[in-house]
């Protein structure tokens, strides 16, 4: 192998650089512990269940939000009817956050942990602003 040592040194440098985020977090003492998420919600009369089963919401809430968005904005279909016939307005700020009013512990902590940056709040108003 020509220049074998050069290739090996190059590989080592590459791997070190590629794994910098892990070293950085380890050095900063930030572990990979799961975030402290609070899922308890505000008690809203007549709203003791979510619009979909919790399992589904946990894994696919973003899909549901995208669907709602397109149905309201593009389809002018504004009412969501659940499997058992309850009716909800398809609205992140008015329906979702009505119960889940603890956005910072309910939404943000997990999003931060997963490094997900939903851009909803660049336009839609967070509860803090709304109060």
């Amino acid at each position: 192998m020509f220049d074998g040592w050069k290739i090996i040194v190059g590989l080592i440098i590459f791997i070190t650089l590629a794994t910098v985020p892990f070293w950085y977090d380890a050095a900063a003492g930030k572990g990979t512990d799961a975030p402290d998420i609070r899922i308890e919600t505000k008690d809203v009369p007549g709203r003791d269940q979510c619009v979909m089963p919790a399992e589904y919401m946990r894994s696919d809430h973003m899909e549901l939000l995208n669907e709602w968005r397109d149905q309201v904005v593009r389809g002018n279909q504004r009412v969501h009817v659940t499997a058992d016939g309850r009716k909800y307005s398809r609205s992140l700020t008015n329906t979702c956050l009505d119960c889940h009013s603890n956005k910072d512990t309910f939404c943000d902590r997990c999003h931060d942990y997963m490094s997900v940056k939903p851009y909803c709040w660049e336009c839609h108003l967070e509860p803090e602003v709304m109060k």
Binding site: T93, N94, Y119, E122, C123, H124, L125, V129, M130
Partner: peptide, 10 residues
């Protein structure tokens, strides 16, 4: 004065 029921734009 921000109207909370309507989105702003980005």
């Amino acid at each position: 004065e921000i109207e909370p029921d309507f989105p702003t734009r980005m």
